[in-house]
């Protein structure tokens, strides 16, 4: 962990519990920092994106890593400006691939160097980012109109003989 060197100083007082160590990492040093953990035998546990745009104009990314042998959770907190892409760590941890796709579709946060940044859970072509705090309801056009049409009348069901 010491190899990580100096991280950024905490941009906000927002306590983190449930981890042996939680540290702020600058977006530019994320790949390097996660590689240190990968080599130290940590596994990828989770990644969370938190919308803090209204208060700070940023997304807070929380990565947690853990070890099998002696559990000690390390949390990376990244203060990511909403408009700049965050470096992808999918080359270091395979699990980051899906997690980053999820953050992209839910928040519109881009990741640079991601091999396949496309929709994961939402239907392909979804144009809104539902987990943003500014999201209220999907646009009406996101419904597939052909589905709401009534089924063809007697065609699907041959007439009964009465």
């Amino acid at each position: 962990m010491d190899a990580l060197g100096a991280s950024v100083s905490a941009p906000t007082e927002h306590p983190f519990s449930g981890a042996a160590e939680a540290r702020w990492v600058a977006p530019g040093r994320l790949v390097e920092a996660s590689r240190v953990l990968r080599e130290a035998g940590y596994f990828f546990e989770s990644m969370t994106c938190v919308d803090r745009i209204a208060a700070h104009g940023v997304f807070e990314l929380i990565y947690t890593f853990n070890r099998w042998e002696a559990a000690s959770r390390v949390a990376f907190r990244v203060w990511a400006p909403a408009t700049e892409p965050v470096p992808s760590i999918s080359g270091v941890f395979g699990a980051a691939n899906w997690n980053e796709r999820e953050a992209w579709e839910f928040y519109g946060l881009a990741f640079s160097g991601h091999p396949n940044l496309t929709w994961l859970l939402l239907p392909e072509g979804t144009e809104f980012h539902p987990l943003l705090k500014s999201f209220t309801a999907p646009p009406a056009s996101s419904y597939d109109d052909s589905l709401t049409a009534p089924p063809p009348p007697d065609d699907a069901h041959p007439p009964a003989h009465h």
């Binding site: 990968r38 596994f43 990828f44 941890f93 395979g94």
Partner: peptide
């Protein structure tokens, strides 16, 4: 190693 990389 696969398990570690993916968090299995």
């Amino acid at each position: 190693d696969q398990c570690r990389s993916y968090g299995v």
